[in-house]
Design a protein around this nucleic acid. Sequence first.
DNA 1: CCGCTGCCCTGCAGGC
DNA 2: TGCCTGCAGGGCAGCG
Length: 297
Amino acid sequence: MPELPEVETVRRGLEPWLVNRKIKRIEVLHQGAHRGYRKMEEIPLSAAHGSRIKAIRRRGKFLWFELNEDIALVGHLGMSGQIRIQSRRLPSEPHLRLRMDFGDRRHEFRFIDQRTFGWMAIDPLALQGSDLLPLSVLDIAPDIFDSNFNHKHVIARIMSSKSEIKRVLLDQSILSGIGNIYADEALWRAKIHPERKAATLEPKEISAILSGVKQVMTQALSRGGTSFDELYVNVNGESGYFDLSLRAYGQEGEPCHRCGTLIKRIEFGNRSSHFCPRCQPRGRNMRAITNRSVRTR
DNA sequence: CCGCTGCCCTGCAGGC
DNA sequence: TGCCTGCAGGGCAGCG
């Protein structure tokens, strides 16, 4: 599942191939790959034909190619999206959704997406402060590596939420780039229960979560950066290059690396949270709400 | 305005 | 063996 470190790895991998190159042709092989984003006016991807890619930028999990001061080609990998610089001669992948000719004799850009939650679209750029952002990114908060990231402001926003901290961490309008995996990992590092109400957290505890986020993402980035070769600019989601370092996510029934207590999995909404019941206690304020996690066994 | 649920989609694992 | 169900989870629409 591509979260910030995976998208950033893709961005870094694409830069040497695409910056200053001209988009010759984009071919959409699956309509879903170019579905209208929100109520955005749908501009055909062919509008990018002939444009030079000035820069490749990222905020949170959103990636975009800046084409000029007015327009960008924006992409989101969704859950299963992959971007590869691939030999033109290789046959189409089973879930190839879009390909782009960027003027390289031997290689082309391929967008592959099994579950089709990903998309690419032409999006007008707008000024936000000193940043040029695609319209679809205007509501996305700066991520933890962004120079606009404001630690105090984010702490205040988290504390003013009425939700559980896990939900808040997944809210891309407060702090972007975090998905289910990194949320669980950061909470494990900070020793905070995923169902703690955000408003009950001390600033110190939120700082611990934020540094957990930064640590685990930095670690993932350093590994992701070493895992791709010349042709593949993306990380292979299935290879689990980061699995070795996972302490909570997907570790149900495994002993906690700190205390040996078995990691527990609980449902929330349509998804799940993984945590150590001993290192990450609910805290007094949670006891009244539910004992669902106890009932699962 | 805010918070939460349901939904989009496909492949795969596990149960019967 | 084959069918069915549930699960994976990004983010949005729509509801209360």
